[in-house]
Amino acid sequence: MEQLTSLILLSIALGLDAFSVSLGMGLQAVRLKHAFVAGIVIGVFHIFMPGLGILLGKWLSVSASEWATLAGGVMLFGLGAYAVFASFTEKHSFSYRMTGVGIWLFALSVSIDSFPVGFSIGLREAEVWIYVLSFGVFSMVLTWAGFIIGRRAGGLLGTYSELLGGSILCALGLSAIF
């Protein structure tokens, strides 16, 4: 049960980055068709990026000693701390187009942080497919939710969702360390 809770919290934390960006983009009246496709592409990227990290982590954990779990926890905590501090800094808006290369850049930008998370999971004994599918599904759904809510709400939630996601990553990192 504890592992399931960690999986769900980690999936939400990774998806909140996509949620916060799509929330802001939803304020720009992105067509629902483009938002739908963006959610799918982001879900696929959130499967691919941590999947690569998990494979690399598993490869290293075979030859690594006991410090591997500590290293994974430190990476999670560091990524979470970065997200928390970034939520307090001034945002410089980068305009994405929801077609062509723009959608791929958008998906890469919100999923790149899932690579080190996957790496830290790969250092532990974990079911790869369960993790990466969970990351993909949660990211896809949270992206769609961000676009829909962004069309109807103000930008206040965007900052708080990034802060919440970073806090969850910090907590999971500390849990792995201690």
Rank of each mutant, 00 (worst) to 15 (best):
G102D: 02
E90A: 15
W129N: 10
G118V: 01
Y96F: 15
S114K: 05
H92V: 10
L105A: 07
F119V: 12
E125F: 06
F115Y: 08
G122F: 14
A126H: 10
S134N: 06
E127N: 05
T89N: 14
F94H: 10
F94N: 08
L123I: 08
F138N: 05
A107F: 13
I121A: 13
S87H: 06
I130Q: 14
D113L: 06
E127I: 11
R124H: 09
V132F: 04
I103S: 11
Y96K: 09
G118Y: 00
V128D: 07
L108A: 06
M98F: 08
G100C: 05
F106S: 03
F94C: 12
V137Q: 02
A107Y: 09
K91R: 14
G118I: 00
G136I: 10
W104N: 04
G100N: 03
G122M: 13
L123C: 05
T89E: 14
G102F: 00
Y96A: 03
F88S: 03
E90V: 15
F115I: 07
P116M: 10
F106H: 03
L105K: 04
I121Q: 15
I121D: 09
F115G: 01
F106K: 03
I112K: 14
G100Q: 03
K91Y: 14
F115L: 13
F119G: 06
V137G: 01
F115T: 02
L133V: 07
A107D: 06
F88I: 05
L133D: 02
S95R: 14
G100Y: 01
A126P: 09
K91V: 15
I112R: 11
A126C: 10
D113A: 07
